[in-house]
Simulated assay, not measured.
Amino acid sequence: MSKPFELRWEGDLPGSPLQIWDGITKHGAAWIWDIDYEPRVGGAERGLTSKGGTVTAWEPQRHFRTEARRDDGWHNALDYTLDWTHLSYVHSTVFEPHEYAVQADACIQHTRFYYHSLGEYLRHFAGRAPHYLGLDEVPGSTADVLQRLGVPETAGPGDRIALGTIDYRDGTMVGIRTETELVRVYGREPWGWPVGVGVHAFDGAPDERAWREKVAA
């Protein structure tokens, strides 16, 4: 039987309530990946879950919720409550018992990174059209990928490198901010998964070929 999981995150975000609302509901490509929601209760969700879901709460700049369910009992729900610029987020889902520890830890670590990235987008790029490039199963280890990107082993948040500025480093998760992009390195080795790289570009679509060569050279 599936085991329920709930994750909560909350914090103050930069920008106006409208910018935060739009970041969550319209501009997933700016900080997580391409997701589309129809802006109404009963509207369709596309891109977040494999078979899509449904918007179940839509109160602009106050409350948003999206849910997805399957006949086998699986469900996934994201709930956002905005009090001016303070966001309270709840993620509810289920995991199989044999993979619960791995999935729960991965979800926690990814969520921390995602909402840091939302803050970076709002602080530095709000109002600019986002373009997302996701590179999954990048060859090599996290250390290999970071070396290719010119990130020293000792570099931490605030440090400058050739590519830009390190804005996040927690375990195997590393964020780099350039003048036009947020580059996210998802070191997923702790869970037995390949490294992923996300590029959120704000000055036109990123060059996929160039980025694949950069991270996999």
Rank of each mutant, 00 (worst) to 15 (best):
K3C: 01
W9P: 00
E10S: 13
L13G: 03
P14K: 06
G15N: 09
P17H: 09
Q19V: 00
D22Y: 02
G23R: 13
I24S: 05
H27M: 06
G28N: 07
W31E: 11
I32P: 00
D36L: 08
D36W: 09
Y37V: 14
Y37C: 11
E38Y: 11
G42M: 13
R46Y: 04
R46S: 12
R46L: 09
R46K: 15
G53D: 03
T54N: 11
V55N: 09
T56H: 04
T56K: 01
A57R: 13
E59V: 13
P60T: 10
Q61W: 06
Q61V: 15
F64Y: 11
R65L: 13
E67L: 13
R69K: 15
D71R: 11
H75T: 15
A77M: 03
L78M: 15
L78F: 15
Y80K: 04
Y80S: 02
H86R: 10
S92P: 02
T93K: 05
V94M: 06
V94P: 11
F95P: 03
H98T: 13
E99W: 04
V102A: 13
V102C: 03
A106H: 15
T111Y: 05
R112A: 08
S117L: 10
E120S: 07
L122K: 03
H124P: 05
F125M: 08
H131Q: 13
L133S: 07
G134L: 03
D136H: 10
V138M: 04
V138Q: 02
P139S: 12
P139H: 07
G140C: 05
G140L: 00
S141K: 00
T142S: 12
A143Y: 06
D144L: 06
R148I: 00
E153S: 15
T154C: 02
T154N: 08
L163R: 13
G164E: 04
I166H: 08
Y168D: 03
M173N: 08
V174N: 05
G175M: 07
G175S: 09
E179G: 14
E179K: 05
T180W: 04
E181Y: 00
V185T: 12
Y186H: 12
G192M: 14
V195A: 05
V195G: 06
G196D: 12
G196S: 15
G196A: 11
G198E: 01
V199M: 00
H200Y: 07
H200S: 10
G204I: 02
A205K: 04
P206D: 00
W211R: 07
W211Y: 08
K214T: 10
A217M: 10
